[in-house]
């Protein structure tokens, strides 16, 4: 197990993403953050707090994608987690999906489907803490905390204080 990012580096990366979001959106008019559970939810909350301190408060929510996954047949059923829409909804908003790791891209495809059921955003972007490569779909992130080239024999483990008690990104061999 090797440490790739520690707590300070994670918050530095998130801070940079926050600034990029402000820059790209010329302020934060109509920006809405949607975190993908489990860890994307906390990252979205942190980004929202940072955006509030550097520019303006933004609305944020969570988006459960369980029922839209394309690997439902390959894994045992998972418990559903709440989808929480921001008060203003997502109709006509600039939605930024937030997740911890971008890998095959299938989670994001499911998220786009789930989002489509809830409304029609003006635009959708993607912010991830880690991009580890190995895409299986034509999907890319707009904001990336850190690009980490990995092999398929490795797994990337993101820990966040909110649920894991520590902030870290580690790489470990896939347990057989």
């Amino acid at each position: 197990m090797s440490l790739i990012l520690d707590g300070t580096e994670i918050s530095r990366a998130l801070k940079r993403i926050a600034h990029e979001i402000v820059e790209h959106h010329h302020g934060l008019n109509s920006v809405v953050l949607m975190g993908i559970p489990t860890r994307g939810k906390y990252l979205a909350e942190r980004l929202a707090a940072m955006l509030a301190s550097i520019e303006a408060p933004v609305e944020h929510g969570t988006l459960d994608i369980t029922m839209h996954r394309d690997d439902i047949r390959l894994r045992p059923p998972r418990a559903l987690v709440p989808t929480l829409l921001p008060v203003g909804g997502i109709e006509g908003k600039s939605v930024i999906l937030v997740d911890d790791v971008l890998f095959s891209g299938r989670t994001i495809r499911a998220a786009l489907d789930a989002l489509g059921e809830l409304g029609r955003p003006a635009s959708v972007q993607l912010a991830v803490l880690v991009d580890r490569g190995h895409r299986e779909l034509p999907i890319r992130a707009d904001y990336v905390g850190k690009n980490i080239p990995t092999s398929l024999k490795e797994s990337v483990k993101v820990s966040l204080i909110e649920i894991d008690g520590i902030d870290s990104v580690e790489i470990a061999p896939v347990s057989p």
Binding site: D64, H68, L80, T83, L85, D113, E117, L118
Partner: peptide, 13 residues
């Protein structure tokens, strides 16, 4: 909660 809103049908099965 999910189906109370705009989502009437899920693609799951």
């Amino acid at each position: 909660k999910l189906t109370a809103g705009t989502v009437k049908k899920l693609p799951t099965l």
